[in-house]
Write a protein that binds this DNA or RNA. Sequence first.
DNA 1: ATAACTTTGTGTCAAATCAACACAAACAAG
DNA 2: CTTGTTTGTGTTGATTTGACACAAAGTTAT
Lengths: 226, 226
Amino acid sequence: MKPFHSYQNPSLAIDLVVFGYQQHTLSVLLLNRNEAPFKDTWTLPGAFLQMEERFKDTCARVLKTKLGMDDVYLEQLYSFDEPDRDPRGRVIAVAHYALINPKNFAITAGSMANDVKWFNIHEMPALGFDHKTIFTQALQRLRSKILYFPVGFELLDDLFTMPELHELYECILDISIDRRNFRRKILDSQYIINTGKKREGLQNRHPDLYKFNKKLPKNAFQLNIN
Amino acid sequence: MKPFHSYQNPSLAIDLVVFGYQQHTLSVLLLNRNEAPFKDTWTLPGAFLQMEERFKDTCARVLKTKLGMDDVYLEQLYSFDEPDRDPRGRVIAVAHYALINPKNFAITAGSMANDVKWFNIHEMPALGFDHKTIFTQALQRLRSKILYFPVGFELLDDLFTMPELHELYECILDISIDRRNFRRKILDSQYIINTGKKREGLQNRHPDLYKFNKKLPKNAFQLNIN
DNA sequence: ATAACTTTGTGTCAAATCAACACAAACAAG
DNA sequence: CTTGTTTGTGTTGATTTGACACAAAGTTAT
């Protein structure tokens, strides 16, 4: 397919904010550019949209070829249109954010070139283009979405414990939440199911293992923050 | 500015879901196309993005030239990328929605060609392209946004009464809300200010006139629906 | 006038929810 | 088997909510 009319179109790119959670830290994946513009500067991964691609295809292509990731939670964030956001010319960016589970995190963390790196969201370097804005907006979106939709599970293993989920929420929202009230809210929402199993390990009391409830109950979930 | 790389880009358009409120009805503005594709079919207003334009510029251009409207509340909705959403070729649409106040509503309702028409959201005709999807998503967004952000005021005059605001909410959300509990919620939120004036008219008791509080209080506003 | 009716503003109260906390059970280490 | 830590469960007072009653301010009819 070709564009059917004659005047010039802006270029179309997608940019990706890839979130991962490990070591009690929420992190974002950045690339260090090896060419101008913004050579030797950290930026969000991205690519130009190919003519036959849908946004998710482009995202998947970036995640697969540049980062070696498969099967990732993806959501469209916002489209950015500042005329000078790219010094090379007019580029519209349709930003998405991705949530990856620890399995993918481990893969990338191991086999990673030194121009690809996870950054703690509290220790971000300066970013090229308008990627700081995009990152900030993605974080905001994640924070507000997690309050009413069970999107956090995408960042955990299939089986997880209540303390793990609790800490994930505290980490993403950057606040402390009462452990017991949190538990009650989550359980009432029926978003998770107790598998009966326990996590064995080096800890003290072995916590129950839960899994995400795939048939979403309509029990509204609203986590209130003070 | 020109696109700096060589491969073909999809065309970029914006589509607009223009909401208006009058006669106790939430309506959307539609255009009847006079050329193929979708000739003689109702569609959302829209235009192709010009090289120097930002999204809001294109929106303003459509609102001004096609509809004669100025100074409208605008928000980006979502970007639509189905490869065959336009039979002429690949077109990415960055959809926005607009909320217009009764002043603009009156202007357009008067001087309107017969290929431009307001439709009650409950009596929508079949729409061309993927505009049904876009409209549905815009309505959803408006409905969820109004629950926690004072966006409804954009659809009313500068001065409005509590019953008017109440009915607007009932109309947008398509539910009935207890008049007195609604009042309490709104007043607690401090989103509106009592001007001391009263609405004179044909009614019974003259209701107080309120205005929108421009310096938004951080008093969280959360209207709960049952 | 004044009585009857409509609409708007204000207040009440039981039920549900929430925030803060106590306590017991399960496990490890000494 | 005692001490310390973590996890699961329950309690309680305060706040918020949902469902109302009632009074005040108008209009219309008699």
